[in-house]
Design a protein around this nucleic acid. Structure first.
Lengths: 356, 356
DNA sequence: CTGTTAGCGCATTCAT
DNA sequence: ATGAATGCGCTAACAG
């Protein structure tokens, strides 16, 4: 394993010059740089990340904390963020923190020796910054994240206290609901949690707020949300729950496409026509949405992720990993990317006088 | 930022003792250990990973190289591997290497300054071991991986030269094809690449081999594979290609469920009945397979991933990251996990005399 | 532009 | 069971 010293010896310069030359630090004569690079190449020299971190105080790594990998939003965000960060020389430390397994309080707390908590062994001192993907966060956990002492950015929703790149989830709820009302529907329910129930939070809660707002503005009754996780399986379960009731609503806002697909499937299995009897609108514009001819509210996932990663890189470029050197108000940055209604075949005009 | 020295001072012992106590090294008196731990907790001490790596020679991190995140197989494998490794104290460095962007030759090669190559900046010296998820690898690239100087394990297919945890893809091809032949089909095609075309490799190639073997053993004609990527969109494209031909086969082996779902959809759009006119069998047992009532060959993804991760941990436990200390024949380990036919509604008995 | 000198914070000898 | 000393490989001043 060649070290920087071997390269220095082979080139006849000091290790400092080797270090500078290999990092492209300007203050090296061109011929010297070329000789150093050639020698490094020949010797198969690879710098030790650990030694560089220790000496420089920066790890050139970013933590990526996500509750899921296999769900569309998260996998696309992960792919995008990794690509942007790696292109700019940063490693990505993947931390999967399932929803039940949230950020825990710091020192003093008794933690079972299973998974380490974010704040201690996980990210502190190991990374220069952290990207968080729509994690269910409560106040105390937020403090923990901010206490990491480095930049943290949130992707997907807007979390007060964290710089965020997300969408306007209230508007998402409004768009979906308004679309159904525009089609003449009056009995519209939302499926996917209101955020009031345990486990409900951020995006889901905001979408419900938008739903309720539009319903009430139209003089209609906002119904309690049908609470469930945003998966196909849960969508099917929710559909069965709806089918067990005396009457079906004519319009459904599902807070994700996967959920909507589950609804669609189970409703049709039960002989309910979509959109004949019930109109369904989802959220995401998942790649499968077109397949299922699903009307949905599209959100730009890759764009949110890319904007967050680039913003973080800019921050890391100016400031170091040291908290004190971060610009004031770095944590106040909020960007909301646009969403849009995509009309397909799962929604249709309500039948006139469809009373029962 | 408290350092080990602060803890030592606060406890009245040496840094060496702190180091031993905090890592549970046995050779520390119980009362001492307790005092040290308490002090560390109070001071909010977090060891520096960089310093520990530099001093010990091990990074306590594992590289995870994958061509995709958003495809089912890969996302499940990633979730599983991360969970197992983190539970055992290892960080996971995520490296996404899109198929076009494969491992490149080592020193001497001219590489555009876009993404770094695996072997140089990426993994060497940054991790103690590497997990590779079914990457398209050619011989020279394999050498590169083996040249990393640490343990490498492959998940998903069996790559000669790498310890592998996968399935028997030839058998997968056999199972799917035999199922169709058992139903009386004689005109059976495989969709999803034979591995002969550019971009075709491992799993896909082997599944075709199994297909061909069963066809020929039955005295039937094995057709050239219809080559395409394993996605819904590509499945739809492949279906259109098939529909443009003078006659449709009565049986289709799709080398992935997503592919099969695309086929199903596009065929039905064109008025072809599945399984009435054409039977389709997929591979994976994707969560959506049941939704589409898809007959498929199930493969245990989480089990493959978990077995590989545990095996790697065992290797890391005995040997260090240093190649010389790896046990002989560590790279000969191969495990194949069982696959199984899951019969659903996308396959049916061939119509008798269904000539045209 | 380049060399010299100090550490970065820990794990690990080798003592005791 | 514990302490003192050493060095992992590099970067960052500071000189020159």
């Amino acid at each position: 394993m060649a070290s920087i010293e071997d390269v220095a010896r082979a080139t006849g310069v000091s290790t400092a010059t080797v270090s500078r030359a290999l990092r492209g630090l300007g203050s090296v004569a061109e011929p010297t740089r070329v000789r150093v690079q050639r020698a490094a190449q020949t010797l198969g020299y690879v710098p030790s990340a650990a030694a560089a971190s220790l000496a420089s105080g920066r790890t050139k790594a970013v933590g990526l904390v996500t509750p899921h990998v296999s769900r569309w939003f998260f996998s696309v965000a992960i792919e995008t963020i990794e690509a942007v960060l790696r292109t700019h020389g940063y490693d990505v430390l993947l931390v999967i923190l399932p929803p039940g397994d949230q950020v825990r309080p710091g020192p003093g707390a008794i933690v079972p020796p299973s998974r380490p908590t974010i704040e201690t062994e996980l990210l502190r001192k190991r990374v220069d910054a952290t990207v968080v993907l729509t994690l269910p966060l409560v106040h105390r956990e937020l403090q923990t994240l901010r206490g990491l002492g480095h930049a943290v950015v949130n992707v997907g929703d807007v979390v007060p206290g964290l710089p965020s790149f997300g969408i306007d989830d209230v508007e998402v709820g409004r768009l979906a609901t308004r679309h159904l009302l525009d089609l003449g529907h009056t009995d519209v329910h939302l499926v996917g949690g209101s955020g009031d129930e345990p486990g409900g939070w951020g995006p889901t809660r905001d979408r419900y707020v938008g739903y309720r707002e539009v319903m009430e503005a139209a003089g209609l009754r906002a119904r309690p949300a049908i609470s469930c996780d945003l998966t196909v399986a849960e969508g099917r379960r929710a559909a069965r729950e709806l089918l067990a009731r005396p009457a079906l609503p004519t319009g459904l806002v599902a807070t994700s496409d996967e959920l909507a697909i589950g609804l669609l499937h189970e409703l049709r299995l039960a002989g309910v026509a979509v959109p004949g009897d019930v109109s369904v609108v989802g959220v995401d514009d998942h790649p499968h949405a077109e397949l299922h001819d699903l009307t949905t509210i599209a959100q730009p996932v890759a764009e949110q992720a890319e904007a967050a990663a680039r913003w973080l890189l800019r921050l890391l470029g100016t400031a170091g990993p040291v908290a004190g050197r971060l610009p004031a108000d770095w944590d106040r940055h909020v960007e909301r990317l646009p969403t849009a209604l995509v009309v397909r075949g799962s929604t249709a005009r309500a039948r006139v006088r469809q009373q029962r």
